[in-house]
Simulated assay, not measured.
Amino acid sequence: MLIHKIDDELSLRLFNVNDAEEFFNLIISSKHYLREWLGWLDYVEKVEDTVETIKSRLQALVETGGYPKSVAIIHNGQIAGTIGFNEINKVSKIGTIGYWLGEGFQGKGIMTKALKTFVNYGFGELSLNRIEVSIAVENKRSRILAERVGFVEEGTLRQAEWLYDHYVDHIIYSILAKEWNEN
């Protein structure tokens, strides 16, 4: 099992099927909070739904030749959230990162460290040239995070995502390998 220790409290690791109940409970306990920005939450109704999600994440290891596209964010031994590449364009060497943290783990610098680590992984291990994040315009915390890590705002995609009963615009942020390596 891949484990990347960031510091004494924080690590990234592959999900495994034994994580299903804990991951499900995190999603359910943060559902109201996360629902503002994540459109898939109503599809998670039982532990078996997270089992299937974890299995598909593990299957992605085969598709990528052994590189994980997404991992669990572990804070003090608990699953705090997840981060991963929602999409990787191998030809153009572009990755699109998605991430979220459970409500109780917010405001502790966890996602800043996890995002920096995953950007390093994308440029170092996956040899990407560009990494993007697409963030709802009103998701100010996530936008501040991207900017703090060094992503540059590029533009707005109008009505980019349907969230339950309305569309939201997204801002595209990116960082290039040469910019990251200069930091």
Rank of each mutant, 00 (worst) to 15 (best):
R141N: 15
E87A: 11
G102C: 06
K55H: 12
V91A: 12
R57H: 08
L176C: 00
G109D: 07
Q106K: 14
I172D: 00
A177I: 00
N89C: 06
L157R: 07
A114V: 12
F24E: 06
A160C: 07
E154K: 06
E125T: 10
T96Y: 07
I83P: 04
G155T: 01
F151C: 08
N25V: 02
V133A: 15
Y173N: 02
G104N: 11
E182T: 04
Q78R: 12
Y173P: 02
F105L: 04
L157N: 04
L38W: 02
F15Q: 03
G39P: 15
S174C: 01
R35P: 07
N120D: 14
A80T: 04
G107F: 12
K140P: 00
I74C: 00
V119E: 04
K90I: 05
T156P: 08
A146F: 03
I175M: 10
R57V: 09
T53L: 13
T117H: 03
H75R: 01
E132T: 12
V137P: 02
F105N: 06
R130Y: 00
G98D: 11
E87R: 11
F23G: 00
G150R: 06
R143D: 04
L34T: 14
Y67W: 11
L41D: 02
G122H: 09
V47Q: 10
M111S: 04
T64N: 15
M1D: 11
R57I: 11
I83R: 03
D8F: 10
L126C: 11
E138R: 10
I54Q: 01
Y173Q: 01
F105E: 00
F123Y: 01
V133P: 12
A146R: 03
P68I: 07
L115A: 07
Y121H: 05
A177L: 00
L38V: 09
G122A: 04
D7T: 13
A80D: 02
F105Y: 15
D19P: 09
H75F: 12
G155P: 07
M1Y: 04
T50D: 05
Q78D: 14
H166D: 08
I144Y: 15
I175G: 06
A60H: 06
I171G: 01
I88D: 10
N76T: 03
I94E: 09
I74F: 10
H166L: 00
D19E: 14
I135E: 14
Y33D: 09
G95W: 02
E138A: 15
F23Q: 03
L128K: 01
G65A: 09
E179V: 02
N120C: 09
V133I: 15
G84L: 03
G107R: 15
R13Q: 03
G81Q: 01
W100Y: 14
H4A: 05
E48S: 15
F23S: 01
R148A: 11
F24K: 09
Q159E: 08
K178E: 00
D19L: 11
K178V: 05
V149M: 07
A177C: 01
K46Y: 09
Y33W: 11
S30F: 11
I175W: 00
A136P: 13
Y167M: 01
G124V: 02
G107S: 14
E153G: 03
E48Q: 12
I110T: 07
Y164R: 06
L163V: 08
G77P: 05
T112I: 04
P68K: 05
G39Q: 11
